[in-house]
């Protein structure tokens, strides 16, 4: 697959003060996608572990068969996802050093975003939903 390695760390040198600043939006798609992909990968990994652990608590053949099939399917999904993430340059299992640098930069960016007042004002939005008893 001919995928361009996206510079997902491009914006990480600057400090983000204002989320409405156009400069801040530069490189945002790459950051969003790599973050979502990593979250997805963590979920898949957790799923595989949960599934394997569940099998050890299983007595009925039906449940065991179901969980085994689910485990197989999830391992397959993990292969597909990690390959996609490697092709996109979001995951570097063979270059641990590079991975560490990216992860440290990601943590720094996440810290900056976490520090922003992203949702000022009232976010209840209840007026837009039918919620007579909420």
């Amino acid at each position: 697959m001919d995928t361009e390695k996206k510079p997902i760390n491009e914006m990480r040198k600057r400090t983000i003060n204002d989320y409405l600043d156009v400069e801040t939006a530069k490189g945002m798609p790459g950051i969003v996608d790599s973050t979502v992909a990593l979250d997805f990968l963590l979920a898949v990994k957790t799923g595989i572990r949960n599934c394997a652990a569940s099998i050890t608590e299983t007595a009925s053949p039906d449940a065991r068969k179901f969980l085994r099939d689910l485990l197989d399917q999830t391992v397959e999904l993990h292969a597909e996802l990690s390959e996609l993430m490697m092709n996109k340059g979001w995951l570097h299992p063979y270059q641990v050093n590079e991975q560490f640098q990216i992860d440290k930069a990601s943590a720094q960016t996440a810290l900056q975003i976490a520090g922003l007042n992203l949702f000022p004002g009232d976010t209840s939005r209840l007026g837009t939903f039918a919620t007579p008893n909420y």
């Binding site: 969003v32 996608d33 979502v36 992909a37 979250d39 997805f40 999904l77 996109k88």
Partner: peptide
């Protein structure tokens, strides 16, 4: 995964989320 589908930019990632 359903929610994230609407959030991602990359269409391959979206397809994988849809599969999930």
């Amino acid at each position: 995964s359903k929610m994230m589908q609407g959030l991602v930019f990359d269409q391959e990632l979206k397809a994988l989320l849809a599969k999930d």
